[in-house]
Design a protein around this nucleic acid. Sequence first.
DNA 1: TTGAAAGCGCTAACAA
DNA 2: TTGTTAGCGCTTTCAA
Lengths: 336, 336
Amino acid sequence: MANVRLQDVAELAGVSMKTVSNVVHQYPHVSPSMRARVEAAISELGYRPNASARRLATGRTGMLSLAFSDVSLPYFAELARIIAHLASARGYRLLLEQTDGTIESERAIISTREAGLVDGVIFQPSRMPSMEISKRRADVPLVLLGEGPAPLSVDHVMIDNEAAAIQATSHLVAAGRTRIGFVGHEEFDQSVTSLQRLRGFQLALDAAGLTVDMSLVVPSAAISAKDAADAMRRALADGRVFDGLVCRDDLAAIGALRALQEHGLRVPEDVAVVGWDDISMAAFTHPSLTTVAPDTTQIATMALDMLEERIGGYTGLGRHRIADYSFVVRESAPSD
Amino acid sequence: MANVRLQDVAELAGVSMKTVSNVVHQYPHVSPSMRARVEAAISELGYRPNASARRLATGRTGMLSLAFSDVSLPYFAELARIIAHLASARGYRLLLEQTDGTIESERAIISTREAGLVDGVIFQPSRMPSMEISKRRADVPLVLLGEGPAPLSVDHVMIDNEAAAIQATSHLVAAGRTRIGFVGHEEFDQSVTSLQRLRGFQLALDAAGLTVDMSLVVPSAAISAKDAADAMRRALADGRVFDGLVCRDDLAAIGALRALQEHGLRVPEDVAVVGWDDISMAAFTHPSLTTVAPDTTQIATMALDMLEERIGGYTGLGRHRIADYSFVVRESAPSD
DNA sequence: TTGAAAGCGCTAACAA
DNA sequence: TTGTTAGCGCTTTCAA
């Protein structure tokens, strides 16, 4: 019962394995009577093709792996949802790999110890230097997500973080804010993501003739609402005064919102807050978040397109695609 | 370069495939010189074992699939994170399957069309009747999550939803609330989860001598903050008056918070709100959420334990395990 | 249109 | 301790 083979079906139907295979694969040139006979045998035996055997024979696994630090971060969860859907529409299943942002786990992603596990990998590194990524063996097709300075040899999808950070910061400047802080980047080992956003932040302030006050730049122990809230609580207790806040991501913004409210500050009246990612919760915080909204569907589509081209045999220099983003204005930092 | 086989390594090293295999598997009884020679050959050739071939030979895939409606729901994302970690510690990788809560997708999960894809399945159904689940072919080990009345033939992990709902409701009653509503269950095709929570809600009100006012039971178009907020907005616009709210989950609570605030009501002064799931955001809403906190680590551990027993050959009646939960009191519904 | 047979790369039982 | 070899179940030329 458990192990019905293609061969068993063939024997019961009195045909060859090839014929059964043709039926299973909907191969058009099979006479209706053959097909009927084979299908009867299939359902009588309860036959199901064995995925491992098929994979060994074809060399294709029909699986992609999706690797990033942590699925429980809303941005990644929402991205995973989209990628899983789009991948499934293209006939792939998704393997979930969490790195927890450790360099060891990220290395393990890059240097797959097993061949033939997945057909391709979509990977958003957080710690790994691009030099190291570029030195990997080009065994399995890889597309990088996120904002690292991607090595020339690898395909890559990102949004223009610097431009978006400039827009977010300028939005606060335009609203007349002058004591604008930045919250939520890692305290040590900053991810490239954070660095690019910080850079845009600084460029925008410079352009507005405001100098960056380093005491208003508040790093966080880790990427989470809790750590951002803790960092902001300390900064506020320390007497620092903000009237605007660019947050590294929406989680940091949510933590900051909490710390500001505990400190008796009103958002946006006293402090305007801008987040990043437009996670679904951003519309439901109190106040709702003005935020940078990467076009995640486009990111996922670009990544899958390039991955499929690689899987299809394309070899060539790494392509760098820039995905769109929009700037969503809500209550935490209105336009005026 | 791409296709180095075990055999190639064996030839280069001048040994048999078995010896190479022994080395690859860390088999202890290999002479050091052999080991060294083989390892040299492995790295010279850049050999990596082929996962598909290994799986075909052993019949084990080392993969589990995790199926539920939607990873972007925080509860599922957080659960997925934990399960992925624990599974990985046990040597399994995780395949992500989203059903979107459609019955067709749930059927596809239950009746795996391919054999040998995964060693086991962890599945939280939302629509599927338990009768149908029990009729499935017992091909691949399955553990059910969540609160359905699980068929006797299948392993199952859940928390006692009814008891938790009673506790949540009683908490509001004890604080003197009398116009207690329920928000966020599906409007049609209620999941068993919702029904059990509603039942506990009703039992607690009955026990307190309060009758359930059906106009305070506010269903939502779907499980999301947005739909719950919309439903609550309509209820409030309709003139319904609440002083307490048991929410089907934290997302519903977040939506409700939003609607209440827009309506000028204060939480908890005017309306006390209790959520469910204790998603990480629950500590950062404004006000923070009092909520039922299922012990997700325990849920994941129980599920994996039972799954591994099944994979290991255990056959027997389905076991039903009840996991712990706690009731976390925060600002949205304080103790007094 | 259908059949026969040679792999795909690895494991594991059995020998040596 | 190491070698031989027969599968695992499917795909895929090449024939018929």
